[in-house]
Amino acid sequence: MIAKLDELRSRALGELDSIDTSSGLEAWRIRYLGRKSALTEVLRGLATLPLEEKRATGAAANELRTFLEKTLTLKEEAIRESEIARSIEQGQLDVTLPGRPSALGRLHPTTKLLRHICDIFMAMGFEVIEGPDVEWDYYNFEALNIPQDHPARDMWDTLWMDFETEDGRQPMLLRTHTSPMQIRVMESRRPPVRVIVPGKVYRYEATDATHEAMFYQIEGFAVDKNITLADLKGTLFEFAKRLFGEERKARFRCDYFPFVEPGVEMAIDCFLCNGAGCQLCSGSGWIEILGAGMVHPDVLRRVDYDPDVYTGFAFGLGLERMLMLKYGIDDIRLFYSNDLRFLRQF
């Protein structure tokens, strides 16, 4: 009986060697470990054997079963490995083939920068408010210390609406800057205010590479007790760093806008030449980026804020100029002609 078991063992092992598929292995398992296998027969027939032989054969048969089961497990693993290897071998991709395209949407570059700038100021406690594109002369000019016939009106070539009052005045216009919202916001709120106003503005202007009839501005202003020019400097210098990079330097120079006093213009050191002077900065090393100043006491008085109690600052900047500087765009007309070959670059 023992000899029969030995013979069984060597036959099983011999057959196992040539098996290389899981189905072949399953057939082998049924043949040698299944319910009808020779080994099961032996184990089942043990009861009929005399005690001595039963013990010896039983031990040998059980040992053989354990051995075959362990061998089976090992073989299973080997076959799984080789099958995975085979499927990988067969299923290789040309990974350089292009992927399946998905439609890619993008925001307009102006929207992107506008959001970025709003985020910077919102982090400093400013609130975003928008205002009308079509305005009254009062808000766009008069309330900002620019009465009729004021020479500073030349700073804003204006598109007037075809609208006449009974006394022949033409008081409706396309706003030339976002500053009218200084008045509208202050008229409707008491200090403290801290507001930024993004929006479209319009100019009576022949378009060329650097001039547009429509563009975006962001106005900002803050009015409270104890706001100073030093706060304006701090706020705007911080803004410049967050927008153009920590290493940028900024400076103020004196400039004139009728609704602020003192009035300043802010420049950053040229990021192309780092201030050495190049074509971008016309050799000066500085790039003008915005106008600002302390809100004029007459403007505060007009909205019923007491200038002896409240002070404030205001600033305004053009979006497209920033974009042009940031990305090296040389023609402002690209923005609103919406050529996909342009828009898809952002």
């Binding site: 993008r106 479209k200 009839a213 919406n338």
Partner: peptide
């Protein structure tokens, strides 16, 4: 998948 445009008013 839409591209934003901004056109003249």
């Amino acid at each position: 998948g839409m591209q934003e445009v901004i056109t003249y008013s």
